[in-house]
Structures are given as structure tokens and as C-alpha cells.
Design a protein around this nucleic acid. Structure first.
Lengths: 117, 117
DNA sequence: TCCATAATTCAACAATCCTTGAAATGTTGA
DNA sequence: TCAACATTTCAAGGATTGTTGAATTATGGA
């Protein structure tokens, strides 16, 4: 993730509807959600949700695939992980304060005791 | 960090000059930098850097304090850490893919073997 | 006090972003 | 093929955001 991509990602996440979409898709997991379902859950018009999904797609934060009549959107975990990493990169060396809370949350993901990679 | 604060933070970080300011301040550490120094380094006009610093201040990402004639800005590590945490919160439970790269970066911050809190 | 320095505020304008409903595209089943 | 469905695209507007230079506020030293 370079600065250009991070800027686009931050821009995409800085709008309420789009942030809600991403959070919903992350919770939804690999099965994703159809555009219409997203619009329904968030009580947003189809054309509006389509606009925001396009923005998220341009930022690389979601992926889409057609499934019959619906288009299924899924969160792009690589991009989201890359963004978290970008946010932490400059900090971790000199300023563990920023990384500490993240490490706390990530505790569940750490595979073995002390061994991280 | 609630959703409202996260939205403001993402908005603040979605502008090139502001993202550069934050990254500079994070690297600068607790000593921070004067507004004029920031303007000079980034080759931006004083009034423009002032505008962006105000935006970052409103988002809570920087702190300011007067020092003689200068106003010193510092990164708000709590806010940045909170934002990282917010980005990871929904993911870590079901989708360690997002947290894994973060954990990798954060390796340096993990205090003892496997013990995280 | 007066001047130079450091930074912010203001107003105006340009550019970008968001929302809306109507029209268009693509898909499925009868 | 035709009709219904799911979604996107388009154009228009209103709202927000970014940039600029001039004016303003605040500080410290002569």
C-alpha cells in the first residue's frame, strides 16, 4: 500500500454510507452481500448505494462478482489489512503508543506464543 | 473511538497535505513541529497549512501549544492508535486476514513472549 | 511603544463530492 | 421473445471542500 492508495482508501472511508457498507461487508465475510441487500439494510436508494459501491471499488476496498441477477460485493481483506499496516508503519518504530492498542485487539490473531511470522 | 470520530479522522487523512503533515508529526515525535516549519518543509503557504492544521485539530489527530512566537503541533498518538483499533475491531474476530499484517508490523511493540496485556 | 515575526482568519472563487430520479444495461424464467 | 428484476449510468442540482492573498491577532525584542 503506497501513499496514493492510502489517500484513496481514507477518502472512501470518510463517508458515512461507505463506512457502513465496508463494516457490513467485513462482518458478512467471504459470502459478501448483493448490492440490493446492502441498499435495503442501510435504507439507501439503489442508485445511491451503487454510486458508493463504485467509489469503494475504485479505492480497491471491495470486490464484486455477478451471481445470477445480483452483483455480490465482498470486502477486500488485503486492502484493509494494507491500510492498517500503512497507518502503523511510521509509528511502530519510534512510537509504540500507536501500535499498542492495535496489538491488544489483534491478540486473538497471534498464532503461537511470541512467534509472529 | 466511535464511528463519528472515525469518519472525521478518515476525512482528515484523505487529503494529501494533511496526510503528509500527520506522517511528519508522527516521525517528529513528542517535540512536534512549528506551523511555519511544517509549511516550509512541505512547500505550502502559511495560510494553507494553517487551514489544514485546523482540520486535523478538529478531527483530534493533532494537538497544539504555543511556544514563544511559534505554535507547536504534535501528533495525537491516542487518536491514531484509536483509529487503527477501530479499523481492526470488526475484523479480528472473524477475519484475521486483516489483522495479520498489522500484527506483523507491531511485532516490535509486543512486550513479552505471547503475553499481550 | 514600535517593529518584525509567527500564525490565523476572512472572503471569494474554483473544484470536488453527494443525492436524486429517470433512463439504460444485463439477466432470468415463462 | 417478452416481462420482471437487479443494478448501473446519466444529468442536474445542491452542498462541501480546497486554495489564495489580504487583513488580523498575538508575541518578543529594540
Amino acid at each position: 500500500m503506497d501513499e496514493r492508495q492510502a489517500l484513496a482508501s481514507f477518502g472512501a472511508l470518510s463517508q458515512e454510507t461507505r463506512l457502513q457498507i465496508v463494516r457490513m461487508l467485513v462482518v458478512a465475510g467471504p459470502d459478501g452481500m448483493a448490492a440490493g441487500t446492502i441498499a435495503e439494510k442501510l435504507e439507501v436508494s439503489p442508485s445511491n448505494v451503487s454510486f458508493h459501491l463504485k467509489e469503494l471499488d475504485h479505492a480497491g476496498l471491495v470486490r464484486q462478482q455477478r451471481e445470477a441477477r445480483s452483483i455480490i460485493y465482498t470486502a477486500n481483506y488485503d486492502a484493509l489489512g494494507g491500510l492498517v499496516r500503512f497507518l502503523m508503519e511510521d509509528c511502530c518504530a519510534g512510537h509504540p503508543e500507536i501500535c499498542a492498542p492495535a496489538v491488544e485487539v489483534a491478540a486473538c490473531c497471534i498464532p503461537t506464543e511470541g512467534k509472529l511470522q
